Computed example of a mutant assay.
Amino acid sequence: MANIHRNRGCSLSQCCLHILVFLIGFLVVSLPSSFVIIQRGKQHFKKPDIKYEETQEQRIEKEFNKIYEDFSQWNLTLCSHASYHRGRHQKVISISVYGKESKFIDNQMYSWTTTILPFFELLVSEMNQLLPQWILRVYIDFTGSTKSQRKHFYKFSNVDICDMNNIPMFGSSLRKFLPGRIWRFLPIFDPYVDYLLSHDLDSPITQRETETIKMWLSKKQEKNFFYIARDHIEHSSFILGGLWGASLIRARHTLVNIFKPMLIPSIVQNYHGNGDQKFLNDYVKDHVRSHSLIFDSYFCDMLGGQPFLSQRPIDGCYLGCIRPCCNNTKNVHFRERRIPCPIECRPKDHLDWIYC
């Protein structure tokens, strides 16, 4: 009996040994795969490495800073030494001037022998009468002019000549890539300018225009750092190249950032000819829409805006018209078909202003 129990004990020990060997083998085989599963689980919850694309504003800012490293240090006017000596807080009306001989010509009306000087003198006279506190800045290419014509531009006390071959901090570099019609936008970067109005050389300044400007300058309009006027059936763009204004004193940093693309050659070179208007609508419109005082005679419902404060003095004398359009008792040069302006674009107490 003793031998029988002894044999059973031995068999039991062998069984235990077999079980132990099996368990060790199982662990050796299964643990690595379990470890892999755990690792895979950890990998599954790893934070994804996402690369975000730059916005258009970020790309513009990066490109601008690459070209103009010392932009924040600029402390001169973007015109001339004469404009610098006028001091800060300037109110500026800005125009571009260039003749047929200039490579920037896109308007055959501009000729040194016929139109440039007469248009210029009339504009200066109108400013003296209607906006005496403002300075006319002339961003000009004198190519094709005579010595006496060049001297004539410097005779007026309310005029600053900005020679595009000698702009402070830029020299002649801007002339190489900046489209002619966009020269007049340069005061937007000028630390000495508080208010800027972009204007056309061949368009008169009228009381109907200046009364809207005075309203824009008032304290009630402080939230509106932009001014827009549209006064013709063909004025269907949100911003017209020669009928807008900017209040730098109200939003200088914002306005500078908005207009930075115009100083990036790879961008602005796509806007030659009549491209100034397209540039404004591509890069400026969406940023100023809700901060603009707008006057409109035909598209106030579609584009936004309010009626003008007074009626046109004569047919064809609209803001932005080409001379001679406002200097006759009856405009004998007006040949367009008269189109009534929508009721929505007329003052509520002057619905009888059929043609605004």
Score class of each variant (00 low, 15 high):
residue 131 L to C: 00
residue 166 N to F: 08
residue 332 V to G: 06
residue 67 I to Y: 05
residue 101 E to F: 13
residue 34 S to T: 12
residue 140 I to C: 02
residue 95 I to T: 06
residue 343 I to F: 05
residue 152 H to A: 11
residue 274 N to A: 14
residue 260 K to M: 10
residue 223 K to A: 01
residue 248 L to E: 07
residue 150 R to P: 01
residue 329 T to C: 11
residue 122 L to A: 10
residue 25 G to D: 14
residue 241 G to A: 09
residue 151 K to D: 07
residue 327 N to T: 09
residue 256 V to C: 04
residue 148 S to R: 06
residue 69 E to F: 09
residue 243 L to V: 04
residue 352 D to G: 07
residue 143 T to A: 14
residue 188 I to N: 00
residue 337 R to G: 15
residue 267 I to W: 02
residue 355 Y to R: 00
residue 299 F to G: 02
residue 57 E to W: 05
residue 214 K to G: 00
residue 326 C to D: 03
residue 331 N to K: 04
residue 190 D to M: 06
residue 273 G to L: 15
residue 246 A to V: 03
residue 261 P to A: 08
residue 167 I to P: 04
residue 345 C to W: 00
residue 297 S to A: 04
residue 70 D to F: 11
residue 246 A to H: 05
residue 157 S to Y: 10
residue 101 E to R: 13
residue 338 R to Y: 00
residue 130 L to S: 01
residue 175 R to I: 05
residue 346 R to L: 03
residue 61 E to D: 14
residue 276 D to K: 03
residue 120 F to W: 12
residue 262 M to L: 07
residue 263 L to Q: 01
residue 332 V to M: 12
residue 56 Q to F: 09
residue 39 Q to C: 14
residue 162 C to I: 06
residue 242 G to F: 15
residue 123 L to C: 07
residue 68 Y to Q: 01
residue 58 Q to I: 08
residue 77 T to D: 09
residue 301 D to A: 13
residue 81 H to A: 15
residue 65 N to D: 10
residue 41 G to Q: 11
residue 249 I to N: 15
residue 176 K to L: 07
residue 112 W to K: 10
residue 89 H to M: 10
residue 146 T to K: 05
residue 301 D to M: 10
residue 116 I to V: 06
residue 354 I to C: 07
residue 282 D to H: 04
residue 40 R to E: 05
residue 253 H to D: 13
residue 236 S to G: 04
residue 335 R to N: 15
residue 226 F to C: 06
residue 235 H to I: 00
residue 201 L to H: 02
residue 265 P to W: 07
residue 218 S to L: 02
residue 57 E to T: 12
residue 161 I to T: 02
residue 233 I to Y: 02
residue 200 D to V: 09
residue 20 L to S: 15
residue 59 R to E: 09
residue 11 S to L: 15
residue 271 Y to W: 03
residue 276 D to V: 05
residue 73 Q to D: 14
residue 237 S to K: 09
residue 329 T to H: 13
residue 303 L to S: 06
residue 137 R to I: 10
residue 58 Q to V: 07
residue 231 D to C: 00
residue 290 S to I: 04
residue 70 D to Y: 08
residue 76 L to A: 12
residue 314 I to R: 05
residue 212 T to F: 00
residue 109 M to R: 13
residue 355 Y to M: 01
residue 3 N to L: 14
residue 352 D to K: 10
residue 67 I to K: 08
residue 101 E to G: 15
residue 259 F to G: 03
residue 197 L to R: 01
residue 272 H to E: 08
residue 72 S to T: 14
residue 253 H to I: 12
residue 188 I to Q: 03
residue 348 K to R: 09
residue 84 Y to Q: 10
residue 194 D to N: 14
residue 183 W to A: 11
residue 10 C to Y: 14
